[in-house]
Design a protein around this nucleic acid. Structure first.
Lengths: 242, 242
DNA sequence: GCGTCACGGAGCGTATACGATCTGAGATAT
DNA sequence: ATATCTCAGATCGTATACGCTCCGTGACGC
């Protein structure tokens, strides 16, 4: 009674998609109210209807969703653990504040993670994927005229995803995806702020694909991907200071 | 303390004035019950009293801590978001399962992150820190005779921490620390499993410090740190397959 | 005019209550 | 003997209730 300490049969891994930090935020149908509330809030934050600093009043949200505050509290707790929401005891929750420094730090980190993830994926990368990446980059090039930052960023994301989709280290891959999510929240698109960067980006993509095709050293590929990302940081800084 | 002798209704004995989370190392004092519950569970998981697969029954925990289930639920939600606990709807929570692959993936990722964090820290690293790291490594060397894996791992952690304490990218630094936490949960000490690795590790530390002292290229330092970690993976694999 | 304090509303933290769902044991049919 | 059904206990999910903390507002004293 005091200390049961009975390790339950460690059979079923119960993989219920525990870390749903990844990409899209679709509202599960059979989910609990707490889950649905989580997705509801999350969605608003993602599409920036709830901007940083926005006050999340539990009672109000509960009323709006037709549930009680308990599920709302759980949803907010989860968002808090993910860093999307900041909580102050006896005061309440608000959408987490972000600043430019966060953006640059995330960008820098993404460069590292993505570079390594791509390098580790090389042995598992077929000609098929390289072709697909090439086609994506060609589409990006064709978009350079009538420039749409959102579309461009989406293609950019997809391009890089293809290169490390088969990453043998799923943990690393997850961190990469988290970083993308974080960036999306911080700024919907880099290219809206530094449009000059787009043509360079396309050229660098070509260079990365060339390295992969010629079976260059993994480290060279890794550093190429990293530099590609880090150059965007430099471009941003230059643009800002200019 | 816990309960400031609330003059509440007589229906709240508060577990006979028991300060439940008393000597807890990390339990905040002014924290809410939900927070204290979180730390209470977290601590058990960290010190492996709650092993992977252990069933976390909300009602039982609530009773043990003298609180209601609501704060417990919030605590568990937070642990779930952090990946320490897996939750299944209408069934309950259990401590997350881990396997060897997770361990190796975390190790690999840590190598990458720590390497970069160290490299970025170089410009902010004074002779003082290098000295401190050297002393730590000397202590590790002196421990090689009467080998204590736990102590060795603690010093090892501290050694590496010193080298990227002043990392200019706090986000990256946080990811490094998370990886350490994750590893600690997966396996208390690598060196208990691969004791041969300890002397090599000390030697590699010396080499890293040499590179730093001679102001080697940042990339060389980064790769040295990374290789240092990755070699442990190789050693582990060899040891396992042998 | 300005600082201080009392008061009241808004909203948080937690306990309790109760219906909903899962699990496992024993009964029953094949 | 095996498979299936049934039912009760264990737990979870959520609603409701209510005390408590925080914060803004206005009266009061200097």
């Amino acid at each position: 009674m005091a200390e049961p300490a009975t390790p339950i049969t460690p059979t079923t891994p119960t993989t219920a998609g525990a870390p749903p930090v990844g990409g899209a935020t679709s509202a599960p149908v059979g989910a609990s109210k707490s889950q649905r509330t989580y997705h509801w809030i999350r969605e608003r934050i993602d599409r920036q209807e709830f901007v940083p600093g926005y006050r999340l009043v539990l009672g109000t949200i509960a009323e709006e969703l037709g549930v009680s505050v308990v599920p709302v509290r759980e949803a907010v707790r989860r968002l808090e653990a993910e860093g999307l929401v900041e909580f102050e005891k006896n005061v309440g929750a608000r959408v987490a504040m972000v600043d430019e420094a966060d953006y640059l730090h995330s960008m820098e980190t993404l460069g590292v993670l993505e570079g390594t993830a791509t390098a580790l994926s090389l042995p598992h990368l077929g000609a098929e994927e390289v072709e697909r990446a090439q086609r994506l980059n060609d589409r990006m090039r064709s978009l350079l005229d009538e420039f749409d930052p959102g579309e461009f960023t989406a293609l950019n994301h997809e391009f890089h995803d293809v290169l490390h989709l088969h990453c043998p280290n799923p943990h690393l891959e997850e961190l990469v995806q988290r970083e993308w999510t974080r960036l999306a929240r911080l700024r919907r698109s880099t290219f809206a702020f530094v449009p000059d960067r787009a043509p360079e980006s396309v050229a660098e993509h070509d260079e990365i694909l060339r390295l992969i095709r010629t079976e260059a050293d993994a480290l060279d590929v890794e550093l190429a991907v990293r530099r590609h990302r880090w150059r965007t940081i430099d471009a941003y800084r230059r643009h800002r200071d200019a």
